[in-house]
């Protein structure tokens, strides 16, 4: 198969594949499609990948059975902040994949997928960790937990 030709300057930048999804997220299918693209890179697959999948808990912050989780975002700013965050954190990475849900989710549904490919495990893991923490604190998303028909906005994040 012919290797993908990229501009030399462009080839030094990480490949960013970032999306917010209103429909269900199948993280393993997304990962498989992304890895097929990585295999076409000049030089083949990067040597290291770090993956994170976050799912909706079955209980609320108050310990009650969760009916649903709602994810609101600030359109335009969320996409912009995600792009900025990826550019800053992915300096040592070859490629970054982020999928983040918005809208209504059920317990067990995937909320977020972060995958980073790099030449070594250190950059892959560091970038993945920084991206995830940035998503939790610096990209305008808000969660609302629904329990017994009552919605409660989640203020802040669970501990690391």
């Amino acid at each position: 198969m012919e290797a993908e030709r990229r501009d030399p300057v462009e080839a030094t930048l990480p490949r960013l594949d970032l999306q917010l999804l209103t429909t269900s997220l199948d993280p393993l299918a997304c990962l498989a499609a992304w890895q097929r693209q990585l295999a076409d890179l000049p030089g083949g697959m990067p040597a290291a990948e770090a993956h994170f999948i976050g799912r909706v808990r079955g209980v609320s912050g108050q310990g009650l059975p969760l009916e649903a989780l709602e994810l609101e975002h600030y359109p335009a700013m969320a996409e912009r902040r995600l792009q900025e965050l990826a550019l800053v954190t992915a300096q040592e990475a070859t490629a970054v994949l982020v999928r983040h849900r918005i809208g209504q989710l059920r317990p067990g549904d995937a909320i977020v997928l972060v995958a980073v490919a790099a030449d070594r495990r250190g950059p892959a893991q560091r970038c993945g960790q920084a991206l995830l923490e940035g998503l939790k604190h610096d990209v305008p998303f808000w969660k609302r937990e629904w329990v017994n028909g009552v919605g409660t906005w989640v203020e802040g994040n669970t501990p690391l």
């Binding site: 923490e133 939790k136 604190h137 990209v139 998303f141 989640v154 203020e155």
Partner: peptide, 10 residues
Amino acid sequence: LAFLPPISGG
């Protein structure tokens, strides 16, 4: 201008 309550993404 937007006022943003505590963010809870990811």
